[in-house]
């Protein structure tokens, strides 16, 4: 699979973020599975998707707030990893994929603001030409798709072409897991742990320990 096809696929999946349906297909754990399956390594796709998911578990799109784009981060991290893996070692590929994913999430959030500003023009066009409602509204699909393409294509082309030198930093799967679980725990504690749910947290913790021991 080359960078262009992967970018088109990513841009189509990212429509699920808000432009079409919102079925949850664009969540990193799902996109990790899809991209992993395409590249023939579902397990590692799920693992990477899961780690990105934990990082972005607390990003809540409430009201006008536009948090960093966790969905794009999932697609970029997993897609870049598999493209980088063609010419680079595991540690280098993992490191660069995670960095690209995190940077991509911030750029994705900024691009989303621009897309929504562009949609403002569509709204003004509709206000002056009421008969254009469906056209102006549906054009939103195109702007969301183009946003995805503009975000994914350069990063995937870069990932496909680059050969990382040996002196470049690298990380292990365990390191990524430590970071992912740390921020995942912080996010989940922040979201779910209250005085009335502490008992459930303890039940979960005891069950978790039992799983590890036995």
């Amino acid at each position: 699979m080359n960078a262009i096809i992967l970018s088109l696929l990513g841009a189509a999946i990212i429509l699920d973020k808000y432009a079409l349906g919102e079925f949850g297909i664009s969540q990193p754990i799902i996109t990790g599975t899809i991209i992993g399956a395409i590249f023939g390594d579902v397990w590692f796709g799920i693992f990477l998707g899961a780690m990105v998911q934990l990082v972005f578990l607390g990003g809540l799109p409430i009201g006008r707030d536009i948090p960093p784009d966790g969905q794009s981060a999932g697609i970029i991290t997993v897609g870049s990893y598999f493209l980088l893996r063609n010419f680079n070692s595991f540690g280098h590929s993992l490191f660069l994929a995670v960095v690209l994913g995190l940077v991509g999430s911030i750029i994705g959030g900024i691009l989303e603001i621009y897309v929504r500003k562009f949609n403002e023009k569509l709204y003004h066009r509709f206000v002056h030409h009421e008969e254009c409602l469906y056209i102006c509204h549906t054009m939103g699909l195109l702007t969301a798709f183009i946003r995805g393409l503009c975000l994914f294509l350069p990063l995937f082309v870069f990932s496909q072409l680059i050969g990382v030198p040996d002196v470049f930093p690298q990380i292990t799967k365990e390191t990524l897991m430590i970071i992912g679980i740390s921020i995942g725990l912080a996010n989940s504690f922040y979201l779910f742990v209250k005085i009335k749910t502490v008992v459930y947290l303890l039940i979960g913790g005891i069950c978790g320990l039992a799983l590890v021991v036995f």
Binding site: M177, I181, S188, F192, T197, V198, L201, I203, G204, V212
Partner: peptide
């Protein structure tokens, strides 16, 4: 909310490897 709290506890099980 309760399920989320239980799962937060269970998430520790992923970490308890070394």
């Amino acid at each position: 909310e309760a399920a989320g709290a239980v799962l937060s506890g269970l998430l520790f099980s992923l970490a308890a490897f070394g």
